[in-house]
Computed example of a mutant assay.
Amino acid sequence: MSIKQRLAGVSTLVEASVLKAAMALPEPVQARLAGKPVVLDGQTLAPETQLALTMQRLARLPGAETMPIPEGREAVLHHSALAGGHQPIGAVRDLPVAGLPGRLYTGSSAGATSPLLLFLHGGGFMYGDLDSHDAPCRVLAERAGIRVLAVDYRMGPEDPFPAAYDDALAAFEWVVANAASIGADPDRLAVGGDSAGGNLAAGVAIEAARRGLPLAFQLLVYPMTDAEHPTRSYELFQEGFYLSKAFMDLANECYVPPGHDLRDPRLSPIHADLPAGLAPAYVVTAGFDPLRDEGEAYARKLADAGVEVELQRFPDQIHSFFNIVGVGRRSPAAVAVIAVKTGAALRR
């Protein structure tokens, strides 16, 4: 190992220690350090989240979207590792899924056969992989008592739309065909994801209903459902709350081919004609998230179509809280709720 690599490792350890210590402070102390409470749209930002964002600004850490794509991907991995920590899991192994890299997590209480959730990671269709979402996938599998199969799909700008959509469908078809070989109950298959992954999960659920493929549940965590983002939350929260307008603009630039219709239902499921037989959905949003309103609009669209839907907003959270399971209290508690509800839904 070179001196440069050793110094980078020491720097990461120091950064992780400082973040963990700050997030472990009593909430009144965090509130004093963070400054005046952030109140928008009748919601108050969690003090620990406000403090973390303040620390990021003071450290002048650039957003991933300000860097060249390769460096941005490294930054996302770095941030995910700091926020995720090392979470316990019954068993984990890598395996190919429809020619794509996959990782199977088995919760300690899952048993020889259990429900299985195909998980599709977020990252604006340009960032993220199996490692960026390793920690929350572990929490989902362990807390829900299920198997979680994460898949690393193709992304832009190297592979623009509809590559990720096609890969997500291929992965689910593989799960249906190979459920028994990975210990999955074929009657309790689910699909889920966060952000861009929530978008892909919604697309998989729609197509599964059209084809008559077995799908018992869909988990949509602050899903991107409208590539045009014509919402009030987009205007309110597009700066200062981690997910920025610049990030979303870059996501469209990297993933959507020039001139392509942003209302294509494979890209914007809010514009899809919903088929009969859609799986029950649990839609999660964050109060301080530009994508909040479009996620909630999609939940209403599902409900209007007769789909069984539970919509839950975590009003004090920001986009990407799903990755924050290794530090703080409020974000990990929210993710624990998601995991428990997912497990309960799949055992009904």
Rank of each mutant, 00 (worst) to 15 (best):
residue 86 H to T: 15
residue 290 P to D: 08
residue 212 G to W: 08
residue 293 D to C: 10
residue 66 T to C: 11
residue 270 I to S: 08
residue 56 Q to K: 13
residue 41 D to H: 14
residue 275 P to C: 06
residue 181 S to H: 00
residue 163 A to R: 04
residue 140 L to E: 05
residue 321 F to C: 09
residue 123 G to C: 06
residue 201 A to F: 02
residue 250 L to Q: 12
residue 70 P to C: 04
residue 106 T to I: 14
residue 81 A to H: 13
residue 233 S to W: 03
residue 269 P to E: 04
residue 149 L to H: 01
residue 255 Y to F: 11
residue 136 P to R: 04
residue 317 Q to I: 06
residue 278 L to H: 07
residue 168 A to W: 01
residue 211 R to S: 07
residue 203 G to D: 10
residue 307 V to I: 04
residue 64 A to G: 10
residue 29 V to I: 14
residue 191 V to M: 05
residue 284 V to L: 12
residue 274 L to A: 00
residue 85 G to D: 12
residue 144 A to S: 13
residue 44 T to Y: 10
residue 104 L to K: 04
residue 246 A to R: 12
residue 27 E to W: 12
residue 56 Q to D: 14
residue 219 L to R: 05
residue 98 A to H: 01
residue 305 A to R: 11
residue 184 A to T: 05
residue 332 P to M: 09
residue 271 H to K: 02
residue 159 D to I: 00
residue 82 L to C: 09
residue 300 R to N: 11
residue 266 R to K: 13
residue 298 Y to W: 06
residue 326 G to P: 05
residue 204 V to I: 09
residue 242 Y to Q: 06
residue 93 R to M: 13
residue 178 N to H: 14
residue 58 L to T: 00
residue 314 F to D: 03
residue 186 P to F: 03
residue 270 I to G: 00
residue 285 T to D: 05
residue 287 G to L: 06
residue 230 P to T: 11
residue 40 L to R: 15
residue 162 P to L: 06
residue 36 K to Y: 01
residue 276 A to E: 15
residue 258 P to M: 12
residue 33 L to V: 13
residue 241 F to K: 03
residue 1 M to K: 11
residue 223 P to G: 07
residue 296 E to Q: 14
residue 144 A to L: 02
residue 117 L to M: 12
residue 89 I to R: 02
residue 229 H to S: 04
residue 86 H to G: 07
residue 67 M to E: 12
residue 244 S to F: 04
residue 187 D to L: 03
residue 200 L to M: 04
residue 212 G to I: 12
residue 295 G to K: 07
residue 135 A to W: 01
residue 208 A to T: 07
residue 33 L to D: 13
residue 232 R to D: 15
residue 209 A to N: 08
residue 194 D to Y: 01
residue 230 P to R: 09
residue 218 Q to G: 08
residue 344 A to G: 11
residue 329 R to M: 11
residue 56 Q to P: 00
residue 249 D to K: 13
residue 220 L to C: 02
residue 99 G to M: 07
residue 246 A to L: 12
residue 48 E to H: 08
residue 142 E to C: 00
residue 71 E to W: 03
residue 145 G to T: 09
residue 35 G to S: 12
residue 179 A to P: 09
residue 258 P to C: 09
residue 264 D to L: 12
residue 4 K to E: 15
residue 262 L to N: 01
residue 163 A to D: 04
residue 188 R to A: 09
residue 244 S to Y: 08
residue 27 E to C: 06
residue 307 V to G: 09
residue 60 R to W: 08
residue 15 E to P: 00
residue 311 L to E: 15
residue 331 S to H: 03
residue 69 I to C: 07
residue 287 G to W: 08
residue 85 G to A: 11
residue 340 V to A: 15
residue 80 S to Q: 06
residue 147 R to P: 01
residue 327 V to R: 10
residue 64 A to L: 12
residue 341 K to M: 14
residue 236 L to W: 15
residue 218 Q to W: 04
residue 176 V to K: 01
residue 346 L to V: 05
residue 327 V to W: 06
residue 224 M to S: 11
residue 248 M to D: 14
residue 87 Q to F: 00
residue 195 S to P: 06
residue 90 G to H: 07
residue 343 G to C: 08
residue 206 I to T: 00
residue 280 P to V: 02
residue 220 L to A: 01
residue 216 A to E: 07
residue 52 A to G: 02
residue 318 I to T: 14
residue 104 L to V: 04
residue 306 G to T: 00
residue 196 A to C: 07
residue 226 D to H: 10
residue 301 K to D: 04
residue 170 A to C: 07
residue 307 V to Y: 13
residue 23 M to E: 09
